[in-house]
Design a protein around this nucleic acid. Structure first.
Lengths: 201, 201
DNA sequence: CGTCTATTTGAATGTACTCAAAAGCGGTGG
DNA sequence: CCACCGCTTTTGAGTACATTCAAATAGACG
């Protein structure tokens, strides 16, 4: 009988890590063993606001969004993730305090999840990973800052153009209202902006 | 002849660190030795956009702002720092890429600066500091996220109220136009918002 | 095919901005 | 001590970017 094959292969993640730090085969195996495969159906949640974010999720297949629900009940998309990206409420995960974000599957997903304890254990066994995850945090910080600066300095149309240029794959895959929410405008207004932008190009 | 006394005492910083990790006297001395005292006059810059941010600066005395200048030349304040706070263009400092922010002294300042190489060396000598600076980065990340979420979900008046509640000392110390810039509104509009808010309370 | 949700369109509205001018405030020198 | 200069804040009128609400149209899924 062949050995049980994990339902989600760690290859994509190991390749991703290899772009930043070099692991021996043994180390790669240790990493693979620490990951918890998880299948998520469309509309299911990987993180729920109010609860501590237990896992960082690496996307092997599918698409998710992280969003904030404001005091009036309006949702604001903060981050999307597709294949080869990590997603979580990083603030919650790192500080182990209740999440302010929800993370929801927009498509059926295959994830590789890593909980806080497993991460700490990995740091012991494979210290090189500290560098990898430090880089992830730096990237998240930098991306967040750039996004904040853009949102205060550019009008909606320019933000939309930038979004299209930066994430051409994403725009195809997302309902417009989610793009609108990410850009900080209403779906109606995005529709009007698009009319301008599309007929110009 | 008495030993030369550094022009800026590290006590405030050592106390700050002690709130997060416990250092032996020897370790504290190592930290103190790695710091570079720096005096900055009002209007002088600690960081200039376009150049790599060389130092993280701990404020012993004074007040500074970090700001972004957009494509139209408008400035947007991103962060203030007073005594017992760190300030830098963290994204630039961490990744050693050109800064997108300027950091300017709003008052005469006494700083303790730590350059990237000195920080790496400190990590070797006093590994506990990794925890301290990881906490600083987490805090910066969390604060940045909260600020971004507020700015998309709250109207200007609510943002002003929150600012007053959160940083009562700061409001006293800053010209209104800098508060306006931080809140993402014009000085004229802040003036009108204040009229509302002040007469209600 | 029908139902449900997403997108588009339009009209009225609102929040915040621009521009201009007046008033306040702080320092400096005669 | 007061007069003046420069800078900040206030006030007001007109405007712009984006929203709300409502209705029509288009798409997607069972």
């Amino acid at each position: 009988m062949p050995p049980a094959i994990p339902s989600v292969s760690p290859d994509l993640l190991l390749t991703n890590i290899a772009r930043h730090v070099l692991l021996t085969p043994a180390e790669a195996a240790t990493v693979a063993a620490a990951l918890r495969p998880r299948h998520l159906r469309r509309r299911q949640f990987a993180v729920q606001a109010g609860e501590v974010c237990q896992y960082e999720s690496f996307v092997v297949r599918g698409c998710l969004r992280a969003f904030y629900t404001d005091v009036n009940g309006f949702e604001h998309n903060v981050l999307f993730a597709i294949e080869d990206w990590w997603i979580a409420d990083l603030a919650s995960y790192l500080t182990q305090t209740p999440a302010t974000l929800d993370v929801e599957a927009l498509e059926d997903c295959e994830l590789l999840q890593l909980d806080r304890a497993a991460l700490e254990a990995l740091y012991e066994q494979v210290p090189k990973l500290e560098r990898y995850f430090r880089l992830m945090l730096q990237n998240a910080f930098v991306a967040q800052q750039q996004r904040a600066l853009q949102s205060i300095s550019l009008p909606a149309e320019a933000r939309y153009r930038q979004f299209r240029a930066k994430y051409p794959q994403l725009e195809q895959r997302l309902p417009q209202r989610h793009v609108a929410s990410y850009l900080g405008i209403t779906p109606e207004f995005l529709s009007k902006v698009r009319k301008q932008v599309l007929q110009e190009s």
